[in-house]
Amino acid sequence: MAELFEYLTEPMQYAFMQRALLMAILVGLVCAVFSCFLVLKGWSLMGDAVSHAVLPGIVIAYILAIPLSIGAFIGGLFCAVATGYVKDNSRLKEDAIMGIIFSGMFALGLVIYLKVQPEIHLDHILFGNILGVQAADLWETGIICAATLGLIVVRRHDLLLYCFDQAYARAIGLPVKLIHYALLVALSLTIVASLKAVGVILVIAMLIAPGAIAYLLTNRFSHMLLISSVVAVGSSVAGVFVSFYLDADTGATIILIQTFIFILAFLFAPTSGILRKKIVSQNS
């Protein structure tokens, strides 16, 4: 018992580990809540697109000497809005358009990055650097998380209706355009808030896995939000500790744990799990 206690307290003697833990929980929570909507709306690829599209934003912000987060936010939002614009004015499907826009923007970011050679590590943009998080980063992420979470939790019913039945949302006079763009802004903000922790490539896992796991486990949206949050925060905490002892990359460890939980849910979910189905069909 005392040994276990030591296992938990030892990493927390280091200030950088404390900050990493707090950051992981914050990011895990906001991504978890958002992931429920992304999974239900079929916007998983949108998360991928926006996260890649922040790269040119960051690099250009570096050149212009404005805060990198602002550049990242503008880059991400631009990608989302441009996708909507092209979709409305062509016959292509959204996924094809997104694929073109975000890879184009990502490529642009890479080209400029190599030309400019900024002192931010490309690795840190791509994979995050949660152990290097500073107090100021925590504040920034904390404020964004609070705003996004507040918005989503208070308006979750309208957002749910919007995802479920857009025509009816419009029929009862909800401002669907506004909701659409509010979701995109919140998505871009969430990704920006998560960059320091898990980076451009890994944030997409945080934005899909918890919602996908919860979706397998329940038929009620309120439960889905809850399960998703518990899974994400649990994985974040576990990931921080496990990575400390294994000397592994923290962001990657968190995502591995989420993936592991997903596999468990896939196999054992109460109604849809494949093993569960096998057992039921054998017993009957």
Partner: peptide, 15 residues
């Protein structure tokens, strides 16, 4: 979608 029949009908009450 993870909504029950009663949840769908409740959407009619949002207004």
């Amino acid at each position: 979608f993870p909504v029950l029949v009663e949840d769908v009908v409740m959407m009619g009450r949002f207004g």
